[in-house]
Amino acid sequence: MARETTDFRGIVIYRRDYRERDLLVKMLTDKAGPAMFYVRDGKKRGFRMASDLLPFTHGTYIGALADDGLSFINAASETHQYQQIAGDLSKNAYASYLLALVDHAFIDNRPLGGWFDQVAAALNLINRGQDEQVVTNVMETQLLTVFGVAPTWHQCVICGRADRPLDFSEQYGGMLCNQHWYLDAHRFHLDRRTVYYLQQFATLNLQRVNNIKINPLTKQRLQLTLDTLYNDQVGLRLKSKRFIQQMNRLEQKMGNLGRRD
């Protein structure tokens, strides 16, 4: 089990108690992807890195990264917590789901390539007040490829045309143009605006985004499309996702009650 002591950028995904005084801290790192860190005396009062290892904290760390098994943290510097995410229920829920999704998508202790910067950019946007659902939808769209689902978004999978109205087909794994809609009676029947955003999301570099605004109806259609793909094609049902769905149903119910009053 090789370990290399180095500096790395990290984002705390979660932490849990381990034994009486220690912690296990799951982090997303730029050099080793998701990694589980053993922190001796992490629960001890006055532990010097206590604030550096809180959920939704990001920064630079020094430690021993393992090829397999547990890694170790020796020091931290320039760490900051995503305070708006930590203090807002909706932002917290979507950020938790996003990090859980990334944790399941990638193998522990393996480099992420450019994905670390994309995830960090997503969290920065949510923390700055951009629509947490839309930012998460962008990441959901792009992570489909990591889960082994690679939809063809930009052209018809049959004839390759992109200049005709398109609709998504699970059966064919991508878009069908209107000349081939007859091939799948169960196509999604997406409107053009939803198709457009899915195409944009598939390649969007969040590091270059300052502002994202999408109308509520299109947001609903985007979420329904992505939920269907994750349920049917990926088969991933995370607790953090169920919490978001429960939260949204409650908000909708409260909104309906308010309109009746």
Results as ranks from 00 to 15, higher is better:
Met36Gly: 09
Thr5Ala: 12
Arg19Asn: 14
Asp22Glu: 03
Asp52Glu: 07
Thr6Ile: 12
Tyr38Met: 06
Arg48Trp: 00
Phe47Cys: 12
Val39Glu: 02
Tyr14Lys: 15
Arg48Ser: 03
Tyr18Trp: 15
Thr29Gln: 00
Ser51Tyr: 05
Asp7Ala: 15
Arg21Ile: 10
Phe37Asn: 12
Ala32Phe: 07
Pro34Phe: 06
Ile13His: 11
Leu54Asn: 07
Leu54Val: 09
Phe8Arg: 05
Gly42Cys: 09
Met49Gly: 00
Ile13Trp: 04
Phe47Arg: 01
Leu53Ala: 02
Thr6Pro: 07
Ile11Lys: 14
Thr6Met: 08
Asp17Cys: 11
Asp22His: 08
Met27Glu: 07
Thr29His: 07
Leu23Phe: 03
Asp22Ser: 12
Phe47Lys: 03
Pro34Tyr: 08
Arg45Ser: 06
Gly33Asn: 04
Leu54Tyr: 04
Thr29Val: 13
Arg21Ala: 13
Asp7Tyr: 10
Asp30Gln: 02
Leu24Thr: 10
Arg48Lys: 09
Arg19Met: 08
Met49Asn: 00
Lys44Asp: 05
Arg48Gln: 04
Tyr14Glu: 12
Lys31Tyr: 14
Leu53Pro: 00
Arg21Pro: 08
Glu20Ser: 12
Arg15Asp: 06
Leu53Ser: 02
Lys44Ile: 00
Leu23Glu: 05
Pro34Met: 01
Arg40Thr: 09
Asp30Phe: 04
Leu24His: 03
Gly33Asp: 03
Arg16Tyr: 14
Leu24Met: 14
Asp22Val: 06
Arg19Gln: 13
Gly33Phe: 11
Lys26Phe: 06
Ile11Pro: 15
Gly10Cys: 07
Thr5His: 13
Ile13Gln: 04
Val12Thr: 14
Gly46Glu: 02
Asp41Lys: 03
Lys44Tyr: 11
Ala35Thr: 13
Val39Gly: 00
Arg45Gln: 07
Tyr18Asp: 09
Tyr18His: 15
Arg19His: 12
Lys43Gln: 11
Pro34Leu: 02
Leu54Met: 11
Tyr38Cys: 02
Asp30Asn: 09
Ile13Val: 11
Met27Ile: 14
Met27Thr: 13
Ala50Trp: 03
Ala50Thr: 01
Ala50Gln: 03
Arg15Glu: 12
Tyr18Lys: 14
Leu53Lys: 04
Phe47Ser: 15
Tyr18Gly: 15
Arg21Trp: 04
Arg45Ile: 11
Asp41Trp: 02
Gly42Tyr: 01
Ser51Lys: 10
Leu23Ile: 09
Phe47Asn: 02
Asp30Arg: 03
Asp17Arg: 09
Leu54Lys: 11
Pro34Asn: 10
Val39Ala: 08
Arg15Lys: 15
Tyr18Leu: 13
Val39Thr: 04
Pro34Trp: 04
Glu20Val: 14
Lys43Asn: 01
Arg9Thr: 10
Gly10Ile: 12
Arg48Met: 00
Phe37Arg: 03
Ala32Thr: 15
Thr5Gly: 11
Asp17Met: 12
Asp41Pro: 04
Tyr14Trp: 10
Thr6His: 06
Leu23Cys: 06
Arg45Ala: 01
Val12Ala: 13
Gly46Val: 07
Phe37Met: 01
Arg9Leu: 10
Met49Leu: 11
Leu23Arg: 12
Gly46Lys: 08
Lys26Asp: 12
Ala50Pro: 01
Thr6Gly: 07
Arg9Phe: 09
Val25Gly: 12
Tyr14Cys: 15
Ile13Thr: 05
